[in-house]
């Protein structure tokens, strides 16, 4: 059972509901207190307690969507490396929260393959996505008809990217509106982890790529938000506890990175409603820094992917 906090007109009503929600958490937690968590149910659905979604949604939307990352990677003209991606044939072995996290991973791999014009591989990931999507009532979003419509757009990457954006939007809306927010949270984590994994793998091959390095440095600000996203229920969910620990390890490594040179405040121009921000910061990472970050991230990625 999940209770989603909504926007209410009257503030006192909101407070009243909060009290009810807190009492529900305590009641449900007391019901769960006798349960034990075995290795097998580590990734079982943890939807039996209440999370303060109104607060968590702020952090949930901070990480870029897989489609947005892929659009940017296309702009950066990065190459495609299949060997660094997840195995799409494993999709049938995931379910519950782990399935949702892997859905995020496969969506990211699919978007990356599309963005680099590797349509055969993208199709393989789309099949993996379709298989997992059916578990959460999302099967129609990645139906055969829709896959065919994507196929027709192979020579029109902009339209294809727009369609993928629409599909991702539908997934988010459906998960939110069907009370599957814990699944959405895991899907976002999976997408974030895989995006970062791809960027670090690309940096391993070309450490001097400044835009990719910039993206890594950005995680200094993003990782604390993901930690907050999962800190809300560490006492209730061993999975969340494990994820927070892994993210904190990642944060420690990120904190050790130097801040880019130059002012972090941009010069800003506004002309006819167009805001242009010019940052002067220069960023670079050494191969050793990339290796250490990748080791930390791999630990989290393996935790999500482990079958």
């Amino acid at each position: 059972m999940t209770v989603r906090y909504m926007v209410f007109a009257a503030r006192n009503v909101k407070k009243l509901f909060r009290k009810v929600a807190v009492l529900s958490v305590l009641f449900l937690w007391s019901c769960r207190s006798g349960e034990t968590h075995t290795g097998e149910d580590r990734h079982a659905a943890d939807t039996v307690y209440v999370l303060p979604w109104e607060q968590l949604e702020v952090y949930m939307n901070a990480a870029p969507s897989p489609v947005q990352v892929a659009t940017w990677l296309r702009q950066e003209r990065v190459p495609f490396y299949k060997d660094m991606l997840h195995d799409p044939t494993l999709a049938g072995r995931y379910s519950g929260l782990q399935g949702a996290a892997n859905l995020g991973i496969y969506l990211t791999d699919m978007a990356y393959a599309h963005a680099t014009n590797h349509y055969q591989e993208a199709y393989e990931y789309l099949s993996a996505v379709n298989r997992l999507a059916t578990l959460y009532g999302l099967g129609d979003i990645f139906s055969l008809e829709r896959i065919k419509s994507l196929d027709k757009l192979q020579d029109n990457p902009d339209s294809m990217q727009k369609l993928l954006t629409q599909y991702y939007s539908e997934v988010q809306t459906r998960l939110s509106e069907t009370g599957q927010q814990p699944m959405l949270r895991h899907m976002i984590l999976g997408g974030w982890t895989e995006s970062l994994h791809i960027i670090l793998a690309l940096l391993e091959k070309n450490a001097s790529n400044q835009p990719l390095a910039e993206m890594i440095l950005l995680q200094k600000g993003l990782t604390p938000l993901l930690i907050k996203l999962y800190s809300a229920d560490t006492s209730l969910s061993p999975v969340s506890h494990q994820i927070v620990t892994q993210l904190e390890d990642m944060q420690e490594e990120l904190n050790a990175l130097p801040i880019g040179e130059g002012s972090p405040v941009p010069s800003t121009q506004v002309n006819k409603g167009v805001i242009q921000m010019k940052f002067q910061q220069k960023t670079s990472l050494t191969p050793e820094q990339i290796k250490r970050l990748k080791e930390r991230l791999t630990s989290l990625r393996h935790f999500i992917m482990k079958v």
């Binding site: 409603g273 242009q276 921000m277």
Partner: peptide, 12 residues
């Protein structure tokens, strides 16, 4: 009613 935004560097 809306604002368009462009940045020279990727930023949070």
């Amino acid at each position: 009613s809306y604002w368009d935004l462009e940045l020279s560097n990727t930023q949070l």
